[in-house]
Every structure is written in structure tokens, then in C-alpha cells.
């Protein structure tokens, strides 16, 4: 009886392990399929339609039905909007991370932390709606333009990456050993000196990861910026002129591009480019973390 029970438990154990491993394998298969499908469909423009990759990457004319597949305006749009978000949202997010890790009294943190969780949870389409109905008119009134363009997109993205940067840089600071804080204080350093010269350098690789994940979030964001960009497929003349980005152009044109057309292939090339950027960021994160250990 005991033996029977034990063998059944043993069999359950093996079945469970097999199922758990199979579920883990799904992750590997999924990312492999995604890379594969997008690599195939994202390079048809070059191999099947014989458009040169250089004409795609550096061409400035985008006319899907007219045979021009220059994606530079969207690459520039994505990079400028993301760059703006990192320049504004990056330092701000790290500062707030410092605040939560080093300054915030428990009672304040109990109010502010849930606020950040709600900001994470607000869907990007709602950020877009806020941008469209609140930010763009305000920017328009201030600058006497239409208000849409890369500045509006940059501001929306700055806000959207804040929660990511805040919580990850806070985590990075929290794991800095207390001995460093105490040592710095006992040398007579003020709190700010401890933060700026000891803690932030000690947490630098974790903070770098926070910023890189902020970049990843910003570069892939679609609807929030599509609603505020103005959607002109041209190289942006200024931060306040209508522009477009890789993500927003895909969503605009995908419905119109006929099956099997170079137009559609070019959109998949843009998606593949986005995927390659995301993978490059993952590798960057690995490098940043390896430096620490």
C-alpha cells in the first residue's frame, strides 16, 4: 500500500515536471517564431521586391502606392521622440526613484506608490486621448501652431516611461548596502553628497537598465503617439511640425497595403527593424548587468 502510494507520487512528480518544462519551452518557441516570421516577412522587400536596404533605411520619400519606400522620416521620428522622452523622463524618473529610496517617509510613499501603479495601468490609448484632447490644444495655444508633432509625442512618452524608470532605479538604489550610506555620512557628507557621489554611482548599472527599459517602452509605443504626431510621412522640419514614427506609420498604413505588395513588405521591414532594436536593447541590458558582477 505504501509502495503503491509512493510510486504514484513518483509518477505524478514526473508528469508534473514534464508539463512544467513544456510550458517553459513555449517561451523559447514563441520568441523564435516571432523572430523567424518577422525576419522572413521583414526582408521580402529586399529579396523579393529588390528594394535596396539603403534605399529603405535612408530614403526620405514614402509613397507606398508610388513605389517609394524610404523609411528615414519614421526612423528619425521614432528616434527623436524616444530621445526626447529619455532626456526628460530619464533624469526625472531617476530623481523620483532616489526620492522613494532615500527620502520618502513611509506615509508619503504609501500615497505616491499607488499613484505610480495607476499611471502604469492607464492604457496607452488613454494617454493618446489625453494627448490629443488636452496636450495638443495646450501646446497649440502656447506655440501658435497646430500643437501636434514630435514635441507632443516626446512629452507623452516622457510621462509613459516614468513609472518604469522610477521603480527600476528605486530597486537599484535599494540594493546598495547600507554600509555605504553610513560610511559616507560618517565622513561628514550631506545627504545629497551621499546620493550623488556614492549611491548613484554604486547603482549605476541598475539605473542604466532602468533607462534602457524606458527606451524600449518608448520606441515601441504606438497609439499614444500616433494620436498626437500629426502623421505626416516626411522628415520633420521642427519639433512642432507634423511627423510620423515607425510604430504609428505601421498602424496607419497596414489596413491599406494590399497583400503581397512591396508596400506591405516595407511595413513589415519597419516592424522587423523595431524588433531588432528591442533585441539590441536586451543585449545592452545584459552587458550593463554583467559589468556589475
Amino acid at each position: 500500500m505504501v509502495g503503491f502510494r509512493a510510486s504514484r507520487a513518483h509518477r505524478d512528480e514526473r508528469i508534473a515536471l514534464a508539463i512544467l518544462m513544456a510550458c517553459s519551452a513555449i517561451f523559447v518557441v514563441a520568441i523564435a517564431l516571432i523572430l523567424g516570421f518577422l525576419a522572413i516577412n521583414g526582408t521580402k522587400l529586399f529579396f523579393q521586391d529588390h528594394v535596396s536596404p539603403l534605399a529603405f533605411l535612408f530614403g526620405t520619400t514614402w509613397d507606398g502606392f508610388g513605389g517609394h519606400y524610404g523609411a528615414l522620416p519614421f526612423i528619425v521620428g521614432s528616434l527623436v521622440a524616444t530621445g526626447f522622452a529619455i532626456l526628460v523622463g530619464g533624469p526625472l524618473g531617476v530623481a523620483i526613484g532616489v526620492f522613494f529610496s532615500e527620502l520618502a517617509p513611509a506615509r508619503i510613499a504609501a500615497v505616491f506608490k499607488p499613484a505610480i501603479e495607476v499611471l502604469v495601468g492607464i492604457p496607452s490609448i488613454v494617454y493618446g486621448w489625453l494627448g490629443l484632447t488636452l496636450l495638443v490644444p495646450a501646446l497649440g495655444a502656447i506655440t501658435h501652431t497646430n500643437g501636434d508633432g514630435l514635441l507632443a509625442a516626446g512629452i507623452v512618452l516622457s510621462i509613459m516611461i516614468l513609472p518604469t524608470v522610477i521603480s527600476l532605479s528605486e530597486d537599484a538604489l535599494r540594493v546598495v548596502p547600507n554600509a555605504l550610506r553610513e560610511g559616507s555620512a560618517s565622513l561628514g557628507a550631506t545627504r545629497w553628497e551621499t546620493i550623488s557621489r556614492v549611491l548613484v554611482p554604486a547603482a549605476s548599472s541598475g539605473i542604466a537598465v532602468a533607462v534602457i527599459l524606458g527606451i524600449a517602452r518608448a520606441i515601441g509605443e504606438t497609439l499614444a503617439i500616433q494620436l498626437v504626431l500629426g502623421n505626416a510621412p516626411v522628415l520633420p522640419k521642427s519639433l512642432l511640425s507634423p511627423a510620423s514614427a515607425l510604430t504609428s506609420e505601421i498602424i496607419i498604413d497596414m489596413g491599406d497595403a494590399p497583400d503581397g505588395s512591396p508596400f506591405r513588405h516595407a511595413l513589415f521591414s519597419m516592424a522587423f527593424l523595431l524588433l531588432l532594436i528591442a533585441m539590441a536593447l536586451i543585449i545592452l541590458i545584459r552587458l550593463a548587468l554583467r559589468k556589475r558582477t
Binding site: 520568441i31 515601441g220 523595431l274 528591442a278
Partner: peptide, 16 residues
């Protein structure tokens, strides 16, 4: 794989 999957932009996932 999980980390890579987590950074795939949702629009790219939509196209997949």
C-alpha cells in the same frame, strides 16, 4: 527568451 519576449513592442506582436 522571456526577457526578449517582454520587450517585443505590442504593435510588432500584433503583426505576428
Amino acid at each position: 527568451s522571456a526577457e526578449s519576449l517582454a520587450t517585443v513592442p505590442s504593435i510588432v506582436m500584433g503583426l505576428f
